[in-house]
Amino acid sequence: MIRMVALRLALMLPILLGVSIIAFVLMRALPGDFAQASAGTSTISAEALDTIRRSLGLDLPVWQQYLRWLLAALGGDLGTSFTLRKPVLGELLPRLAVTGELTLIAGLMAMLLGVATGLASARLRGAVDWAVRAWNSLLLAVPNFVIATLIVLLFGLYFPSVGIFNYVPFAADPLANVASLLLPALSLALTVSVTISENTRAAVLEVASQDYVMVAKAKGLRARSILANYLVRNALTPVITVTGLQLAALLGGSILIETIFTIPGMGQFLFDSIASRDYPSIQGIVLLAATIVLLMNVIVDIAYARVDARVRYD
């Protein structure tokens, strides 16, 4: 078990290294001068620029620059934001918490909706199955930012009294905070629920044809107990895995959704950073998000392997 975790993490390292190279190269490939961008103005003396260059290590060979940057990043130093003039990491973490909460609520919503529709589709078949599959196809075609915009339009037209742009910080009022994230989370969740729904349907159909379900019927167990203990519990394993792997989609989606609903998370930070050409911040966000997604995939992998050993015993 420990060996397997170590192996998975070791396999992750070269990818992480590649990710860091991309994050580094992207920001060094910028049109224009990094030092000039850092100064935030184009009217600056040559001497001043040189000073900035030296202080940022831009006079060194590129590979040394990369190493310096990487070592600093490993130590938690993601550089200093051009616009905020503060360490990027310190700005990033509280925003990450907001995005994390939004992602979590959206993930739960997607799972609830996906499992419910997938289960109904697999168990009831017929017209319900057809309706769920049509609904899923449609949802797949509606991008989350379109859903979000339409929700905003809907509330603007018909329920203008509901303040949907009023983000409440968690510390101020936890309940109001969660409530203020419900609509944004819903716009994120709908698309992701499709994958979960399709996987639930397939898993339930697969499990229902297993011998142990026949045994459960032969025991005379009630339908409800067969559904809960035999069908859902077995089908849930692949479904949870799929949900974990949707994290990337949720994180990516939150960029748009936070911008639309003005939620002060990582997505909005990225959007602002791009608008103000705050490259260290962009770099930090990209690196952090990719690391989280990689770690999450490893966790899902390990969790699945553990469950798999239990499920596929032959």
């Binding site: 011998d211 045994v215 459960a216 239990r310 015993y313």
Partner: peptide, 11 residues
Amino acid sequence: FQDPMSSLNPV
């Protein structure tokens, strides 16, 4: 039933 390998609920 015939197949004890697949007749018990694995979870």
